[in-house]
């Protein structure tokens, strides 16, 4: 390839090998470099005109990836927010309605507007995603706190309600199997001993002598001694305005001031006081006024369900003697 070139020298009439001079070499070199530089510059200009900046592309790509990650993060935040919204909805629309409480104010629920003092962002950090996440997180945080407080409030209220349910008279004081006659007369009637019309403030449940009498709700024994016409009587104070009275008993199973639970045996049927035969005279009072005890007896309760009510208590106090 690299053949030696000759040129014809007319002076010497000879073909003489021609070697490029130093100057020529340098010129050639410069031309080469210049041309390639020109190509380079041309390429650069073309690139700049038609393509974005290299770093910019790289950064944009990186940015895209990061934004995708943040989107997933935001999705998670939104999901958490949805979860909380469900709880809030249940709280306001269900529990607060059921417990007869006032629904929380919308403004309180949102935990106040804004409040991103905790997240001070530098001016060059004002990215949409970051701002949005912090905004959402702040609000979510406030909302969870409000919700936690609200739940505590509801739990407190519910505890009182549950207490009320447990203490309220809600069963028969005598087992249906041991009941001989259910005298449902409540109100004016001819008194069997005095022979005059008198108001009957309770119900008479006829049963054999010594039949156990159960407490119809949790409460405190406020009175347990002989008391005139009542004979041996027990007054149970249930709280929340309820009181029950069990009269004409033969024996007591409790003492004054004792706490009893629903289904506990408190005494036994007798015929003390103004009574003609062994029976239990049962009264229910609400806010110091007599009420018809039938409403509090739930006589339609099935026998096995009733047994559970009294058996549960038997297991609690196994030493009780049932003579």
């Amino acid at each position: 390839m690299f053949r030696t070139h000759y040129h014809y020298n007319p002076e010497t009439c000879k073909y003489e090998p021609s070697f490029p001079s130093r100057q020529q070499n340098v010129r050639r070199m410069l031309l080469f470099v210049g041309l390639s530089l020109l190509i380079g510059i041309g390429g650069l200009v073309y690139y700049d005109l038609h393509y974005p900046d290299l770093d910019e592309t790289r950064l944009a790509h990186q940015n895209e990836g990061l934004k995708l990650e943040w989107e997933a993060l935001l999705g998670k935040i939104h999901h958490a927010s949805d979860k909380l919204a469900f709880i809030e909805q249940e709280d306001d629309g269900n529990y607060r309605v059921v417990l007869d409480m006032v629904p929380l104010d919308k403004n309180i629920r949102q935990g106040g507007a804004g409040g991103h003092e905790a997240y001070q962002l530098e001016p060059d950090e004002q990215v949409q995603e970051i701002k949005e996440s912090y905004d959402l997180l702040t609000r979510l945080n406030n909302r969870t706190e409000v919700q936690a407080q609200s739940l505590s409030e509801i739990e407190k209220d519910l505890t009182i309600k549950e207490e009320m349910m447990v203490t309220r008279p809600a069963m028969m004081p005598i087992d249906n199997r041991q009941l001989i006659r259910f005298n449902s007369i409540y109100g004016p009637r001819l008194h069997p001993i005095f022979g005059v019309w008198k108001n009957h403030n309770g119900l008479d449940l006829t049963a054999d002598y010594g039949t156990p009498v159960y407490a119809v709700g949790n409460g405190i024994v406020s009175l347990a001694h002989y008391n005139g016409g009542y004979g041996n009587v027990i007054f149970l104070n249930h709280g929340f305005g309820y009181e029950t009275r069990y009269a004409h008993l033969s024996r007591y199973n409790v003492v004054e001031g004792q706490r009893v639970k629903r289904g506990d045996i408190i005494g036994f049927v007798g015929s003390t006081g103004f009574s003609t035969n062994p029976h239990l005279h049962f009264e229910v009072l609400y806010r110091d006024q007599w009420r018809n005890p039938t409403d509090f007896m739930y006589r339609d309760l099935k026998q096995e369900e009733y047994n559970k009510l009294i058996q549960k208590r038997d297991q609690d106090n196994p030493k009780m003697d049932l003579r």
Binding site: F32, S36, I39, G40, I41, L44
Partner: peptide, 15 residues
């Protein structure tokens, strides 16, 4: 070829 190579090189360096 040499010109192209060097041109590319220059382009790269410039870029």
């Amino acid at each position: 070829c040499g010109l192209a190579c060097f041109g590319l090189l220059f382009f790269w360096v410039l870029l």
